[in-house]
Design a protein around this nucleic acid. Structure first.
Length: 929
DNA sequence: GCCCTCACG
DNA sequence: GACGTACGTGAGGGCT
């Protein structure tokens, strides 16, 4: 097609892609030879995503990726310091530049660079030509220097935010239209590119001046009329420098091009060329993905590191058709003999659901070496509808009890390792059948010890990342949504392929991860903080906690009444009826109809109606105050009083949460289905929900919680003498902080002062900012910043610790807790706003993580310590453990459990501050806490 | 399935 | 000079 009317040209800013890819990804290297390829990988992924996204009716007819060629351009002749303070590209990025060109060509997209010109110049020339020929141009970049090109026929697209940048967006950024952007840039200058501009003038002022005088030349000619003396003098003194700046930022249409627009026509990628490139780069996931999409065979991708090869030589490909179901005793006995001989087995159970307390066992799969796996179907039924709602058991399955009886000695044999993925699930299922698996290994927890912070640890993700294998999705077997069936209804062949594959994959993951634990120095973490959690949490979850449904029911009714009443009042105040629960509708009422102050927020453009905002409005208005009340009650009702009773198990009459061991980045547990780690306590109405968590008759609930554990850890790791002494002396730590900061005595301290010190103490743990503290305390930002400055002056060790932690994270790509837990920090070397978040997370992780380690250590020792007491450990809430104890044994339990908790760090770590545990007891959780 | 909001440590 | 801002979670309801 000849370029002309109707043609659509996409111009991709290649250099921006490269740097974004480089900073967004950890420093990957090609496994076979160590060549750095992280940026190439990210770049290729972005190109692939771009191509995949361009399938609609407005897909481009022409496209090109444009690169910068060299750092010296004609602009250096205009101004020798242009881009002079830009650091050279990182060592490991440099060899990747030519590879990104290769990648572009492999994707069959035109690849353009010209000696002596920046990518921006070429983009400008192409955009002009294409526009003049009657085509439409989209520049894929968020570079502000390109915004001057926006106009008729030319738009930009921010590839990260997927947001179109048109004249309005340009005006929003620069305060002037695209045609005046260069004037503003000339005045404001640019520190990144070292464009001087006019000193003391930023974009805001520049836009104001240009809007007042029309354009830059008029402004410079009439500079003498400017009222502000300093500004006037600046413009007069620096007129020449400003004109040079304009020439630096200005892009013109006359960059010589040695090719035509027609040559940029979009072509289909050549499958062979593309797949060859990707497999040579050893991008396994992308190779497979591209092959699948193009309907081509993926070439083999080299993968294994030397240590992996040693662990698992010549693994056969994962092939679901190679497995055979085990359906008779002779075959089962053979498997058992094989397992006994080897001393290990990978195991996976298939059930009718996700709730281990309710799901029925449907089958068991086993694997003993890569490629050697089987499925033992036990409870499969006919799929279709049956006569009386009775399910028809399928032929060709062994008897469940017989199989379990045969496997039990193996599964409980202390000399045979049972390997699983998320083995807590299978452990609980089998425990319900009287089998207690031990010893165990868990590939999910191995990955967590190694890779926390980098990615999640589900089997499908691990298989894809580390084995280059895409597992059969469960949805392919049981469907989804309303028509979903249970695994019991899946036919035996399909079930066998799926289940045996899971065991096979688990075994391979085990072989992959096992040698890496010592390599990465996380063996101790895995062995002492991860693996032992499985039986401990398994028992806690199976114990469950009793809930008084009547109490919740009564509260729910009361809440319903109160909500209805509040709703009426709110509608009355609003003058119309609307859904109070809809932030969208509420925002429109508050800000459009009533005209209250409080602007738009967020990328969706919706009004924020968060509690923060409503609290400010509530000072002068009744409606937001009522909405706050309504929200609180609505939350309590829907999330707690209504939802909790639905989780009561029919058989046990108790609620059984499930803890994720590998869910949180820091080592904390997370509680789901239901979440029992966020039961209300801060408000009085909410706190009463805890009255419904009750002990069995003749028992009490006992709660033990660590006092200030994170601050104590901070005092220890950052080695802060004043803080450590205060903890040793048992002084009120927030009052002590306030006393040090504001030079007031601890005795008779103003509670407000103490409150502020407390907020700062917590803020420090989170990587404090003046902004955050000012919002939290509702004080002016300058005041908050002054507090923080004083704090760091009084406790300089904290600043040093924070700087050191961030430096470590930047150097290593991870931080560690006192106990060696490794938390990876990808993104710590990013630049821009995202870096702030990564920094704070890196500062917080060792503190939050060490606290998590300590309570894990206590929990792991607890079952043995309390084995002779009539007591059970039921819940963990980050720094709190909840027990159910017979009435007569409460005091003894408290003594024993407190001792374990207070000494949990030892002997691994000798803390320089004491750990203190507070205890409470009662018939319900509200009393006990 | 995403966003907003809010419950906890 | 501007950006976006406390760390870590899970769940329910609205809306598309």
């Amino acid at each position: 097609m000849t370029f002309g009317k109707g043609a659509r040209l996409h111009l991709i800013d290649g250099s921006a892609y490269i740097f974004r890819a480089y900073h967004a990804l950890p420093p990957l290297t090609r496994k076979s030879d160590g060549l750095p390829v992280g940026a190439v990988a990210g770049f290729s992924n972005m190109l692939w995503k771009y191509i995949s996204d361009q399938q609609g009716g407005d897909a481009p007819t022409h496209a090109a990726v444009i690169f910068d060629h060299s750092s010296k351009t004609f602009r250096n002749e205009i101004y020798s310091d242009y881009k002079a303070n830009r650091p050279p590209p990182p060592e490991d990025l440099r060899p990747q530049f030519p590879l990104t060109r290769d990648a572009t060509r492999a994707f069959n997209i035109a690849c353009i660079e010209t000696e002596g010109y920046e990518a921006d110049d070429i983009i400008a020339a192409l955009a002009c030509q294409a526009r003049d020929a009657g085509g439409e141009v989209t520049i894929i970049s968020s570079d502000k220097d390109l915004m001057q090109l926006v106009g008729d026929g030319v738009t930009m697209l921010d590839p990260m935010k997927n947001k179109v940048i048109g004249p309005d967006e340009v005006a929003e950024k620069f305060g002037v239209g695209p045609d005046r952007v260069v004037d503003v840039q000339a005045l404001a200058g640019d520190s990144v590119d070292n464009v001087p501009g006019a000193p003391g003038i930023g974009i805001k002022t520049a836009a104001q001046l240009i809007n007042e005088y029309g354009d830059l030349e008029t402004l410079l000619a009439r500079a003498g009329e400017i009222k502000q003396p300093k500004r006037r003098q600046t413009l007069i003194d620096h007129a020449e420098q400003i004109r040079i700046s304009k020439r630096l930022v200005e892009l013109d249409c006359d960059t010589p091009l040695d090719f035509t627009l027609d040559s940029l026509e979009v072509k289909e990628p050549d499958a062979t060329a593309l797949l060859t490139f990707l497999s040579e780069m050893e991008f396994r996931t992308l190779t497979n993905r591209v092959a699948e999409k193009l309907g081509a065979e993926a070439p083999a991708v080299a993968s294994a590191t030397p240590s992996e090869v040693a662990a698992a030589p010549e693994q056969p490909a994962i092939d679901a058709s190679s497995y055979r179901n085990t359906v008779d005793r002779a075959a089962l006995d053979q498997w058992i003999a094989d397992i006994r001989e080897r001393g290990y087995v990978a195991i996976d159970t298939e059930t009718t659901g996700l709730d281990e307390m309710q799901a029925d066992l449907v089958g068991i799969s086993l694997a003993t070496e890569p490629g050697k796996a089987t499925y033992i179907p036990l409870g499969h039924v006919a799929g279709g509808d049956d006569l009386f709602g009775q399910s028809q058991r399928l032929e060709g399955q062994m008897d469940l009890d017989e199989v379990l009886a045969a496997l039990k000695p193996v599964l409980e044999d202390p000399a045979i390792l049972k390997i699983g993925q998320n083995l807590k699930y299978d452990w609980k299922i089998l425990r319900r059948h009287g089998i207690t698996m031990t010893p165990i290994a868990d590939t999910m927890l191995m990955s967590y010890a190694l890779n926390a912070g980098t990615h999640n640890h589900g089997m499908d993700e691990l298989a894809e990342r580390y084995l280059g294998h895409k597992c059969i999705p469960i949805k392919d077997l049981i469907g989804s949504g309303k028509s979903q069936i249970t695994f019991a209804q899946v036919d035996l062949d399909k079930a066998g392929a799926y289940a045996a594959e899971d065991a096979d994959v688990t075994l391979r993951l085990y072989q992959h991860f096992a040698p890496m634990l010592p390599d990465q120095r996380v063996t101790t973490v895995y062995e002492t903080l991860e693996r032992p959690m499985v039986p401990v949490l398994g028992q806690m979850e199976m114990a469950g906690i009793r809930i008084d449904g009547d109490v919740l029911k009564r509260m729910s009714n009361a809440f319903a009444q109160k909500m209805a009443q509040l709703e009426d009042e709110i509608h009355e105040l609003a003058g119309q009826s609307f859904n109070v629960g809809s932030p969208k509708q509420l925002g429109e009422i508050l800000f459009d109809k009533m005209g209250l102050p409080g602007g738009k927020q967020g990328k969706t453009g919706a009004y924020s109606t968060s509690a923060d905002v409503l609290e400010d409005l509530a000072v002068d208005h009744d409606l937001p105050a009522r909405v706050l009340d309504w929200r609180q009650i609505s939350k309590l009702k829907s999330t707690y009083t209504d939802a909790l009773p639905t989780y009561v198990n029919k058989d046990t009459g108790r609620v059984h949460t499930s803890y994720s061991i590998a869910g949180a980045q820091t080592g904390r547990l997370a509680s789901t289905d239901p979440n029992l780690q966020n039961i209300p306590i801060r408000s009085e109405e909410g706190r009463r929900i805890r009255e419904a968590f009750v002990a069995a008759s003749g028992h009490k609930l006992v709660s033990l919680d660590y006092s200030q554990i994170e601050l104590r850890i901070l005092a220890h790791v950052a080695d802060i003498p004043a803080l450590k002494q205060a903890f040793r002396d048992g002084i009120d730590i927030h009052a002590m902080t306030a006393s040090q900061m504001f030079n007031v005595p601890v005795e008779g301290m103003d509670p407000m002062i103490r409150r502020q010190a407390k907020a700062i103490n917590f803020g420090v743990i989170y990587g404090i900012s003046g902004f955050g503290l000012s919002r939290n305390l509702r004080i002016p930002r300058a005041e908050a910043q002054a507090f923080i400055d004083t704090y760091f002056e009084r406790f300089p060790e904290i600043r040093a610790y924070m700087d050191q932690t961030v430096a470590d994270a930047k150097r290593d790509g991870f931080v560690r807790t006192l106990f060696g837990r490794r938390i990876n920090t990808p993104g710590i070397n990013q630049s821009g706003p995202a870096a702030g978040g990564a920094r704070r997370a890196a500062i917080n992780a060792p503190i939050q993580g060490a606290a998590a380690d300590i309570i894990r250590r206590a929990m792991i020792r607890m079952p043995d310590a309390i084995r002779n007491l009539p007591a059970q450990m039921l819940l963990q809430v980050h720094d709190e453990l909840v027990f159910e104890v017979e009435d007569g044994a409460v005091d003894e339990l408290i003594a024993v459990a407190r001792d374990i908790m207070e000494n949990a760090a030892e002997p691994a770590v000798k803390l320089s501050v004491p750990l203190v545990v507070d205890a409470g007891q009662g018939v319900n959780w509200a009393e006990a806490h």
